[in-house]
């Protein structure tokens, strides 16, 4: 006898509801590192107004955040700190790698920088640019929203 109804009708709807709730209450952690952090701050202020997407509540404590925007270059010295901050965030959590340096090391292919933050934490969205303008960051955030809406709830 089949125990699961075909199509997972009920669960799909729960998935959607949960994803919707998650995208509408995202709290980014303030993880400003370099130039990109300034653009991240600009995004939150009046001219670009990240509040339109319900994203302006930057949380100082990683315990209250579920999105980490890695804004800037990650040095070898900073890498363990970054990982610790990430580990302290409650699940489910997402990471946006903002800018060329965070994504690939950018133009600084040298001893001091981690060549891409994806070597330390799993990254969901890469935002290109050096630094990415607030519009690019917003596009990245909205893309993340779409990704969450399209995906399934796990963990």
């Amino acid at each position: 006898m089949a125990t699961t109804p075909p199509g997972n009708l009920l669960m799909t709807t729960v998935d959607k509801a949960a994803s919707w709730a998650r995208t509408r209450s995202m709290f980014p952690a303030t993880f400003g590192l370099a130039c990109c952090a300034i653009e991240m701050m600009v995004s939150g202020t009046s001219h670009y107004d990240l509040a339109r997407f319900g994203m302006e509540v930057f949380r100082a404590s990683p315990r209250q955040a579920d999105l980490m925007i890695v804004a800037g270059r990650v040095s070898q010295k900073m890498a363990p700190v970054l990982r610790q901050v990430y580990d302290q965030m409650p699940d489910p959590k997402w990471v946006i790698s903002m800018g060329a340096c965070a994504s690939t090391g950018g133009m600084f292919n040298n001893y001091a920088l981690v060549q891409g933050v994806d070597q330390i934490v799993p990254v969901d969205i890469y935002v290109p640019g050096c630094p990415p303008g607030p519009q690019s960051l917003m596009h990245g955030i909205l893309s993340l929203h779409d990704k969450i809406m399209a995906g399934e709830i796990r963990n």
Partner: peptide, 14 residues
């Protein structure tokens, strides 16, 4: 000591 000339730039292949 990174800025010594015999210390490589440390670039990883791209």
């Amino acid at each position: 000591h990174p800025l010594r000339k015999d210390f490589g730039v440390g670039a990883v292949p791209v």
